[in-house]
Design a protein around this nucleic acid. Structure first.
Lengths: 143, 143
DNA sequence: GTAATAAAAGAGTTTTTACTCCTCTACTTA
DNA sequence: TAAGTAGAGGAGTAAAAACTCTTTTATTAC
């Protein structure tokens, strides 16, 4: 569905969101532990997300990654778009480059509906929406 | 969504289905041309699908790949399952191994619905369903 | 101002997926 | 039964995705 990189990215961002509630920052090491990912790999991914303006960071002691109010309102769709591009939302289900209503692949119509479904779902899922459930241990970011 | 191999597989099978209508067979060369895929690669894929009982073949002159009545009733879900496994239908959207209702990832519930949607759609799409549209040139398998 | 800390940056390496090549075997038809 | 066609099988290459390592730069605390 999405790349492994993107899965890590979403999990990391949800963790950063949770930890950003009380204006605190969180380091790569802690993030890697929380989501059970290779530390240098998630560092790269967060670096990339930082460049694209989806996460904030500061260097030095007490530094780390964090989200502001606006950041907490970003959706999972924004993350997917930043990492995997819009292939999931607009690409052809059978891999055709020119697939469209005018020149459809056999399952074009069906895929349009499915993709729309996925897109809406990811757009409605905001980074800040899961903080409480995560804190309560009702939802998990690893295993 | 599905692997590139799987995209080729589906397109090839839809083409074979179309050509199987009047009990004729179709060679790898013709299939590769029709779906715009590397010939040796689609040969491998079809070989694999043959082993798994999803397509029939015969060697020698006038030989090739074909589908019988039962084969034409197989669904795209069967192809996806044979090539990519059931990850698309049952895997966690965020890549967690133990994600389930008891121990859900943050988007577990939403993904259950989306995956069900995809599964139903692919199960309802039978290989034989597109023959007429393909013949009429209303749907495409390449470009 | 210096030492410690943490992210940024760039250049690898490994693994997986996509794709190719060559030889072998089975089958059909003349 | 020989010739030619077409898939089967195995091993190998290329490209992309996943992941690592090392150095640099910025920040903070003392």
């Amino acid at each position: 569905m999405v790349s492994k990189t993107c899965e890590y990215a979403i999990r990391a961002m949800l963790f950063v969101a949770q930890k950003s509630k009380n204006d605190s920052k969180v380091g790569v090491k802690q993030i890697a532990k929380a989501i059970d990912s290779p530390e240098p790999f998630i560092a790269k991914i967060l670096q990339d997300l930082g460049k694209k303006g989806l996460v904030l960071s500061s260097k030095g002691p007490t530094g780390g990654f964090y989200l502001d109010k606006a950041g907490l309102k970003k959706s999972l769709a924004d993350i997917v778009n930043a990492i995997d591009g819009d292939k999931l939302f607009t690409g052809c289900g059978l891999g055709l480059k020119s697939c469209s209503a005018k020149m459809p692949c056999p399952v074009h119509e069906e895929f349009v509906v499915v993709r729309k479904h996925i897109k809406v779902m990811l757009q409605n899922a905001k980074l800040g929406d899961y903080n409480t459930a995560l804190e309560l241990g009702e939802k998990y970011l690893k295993r």
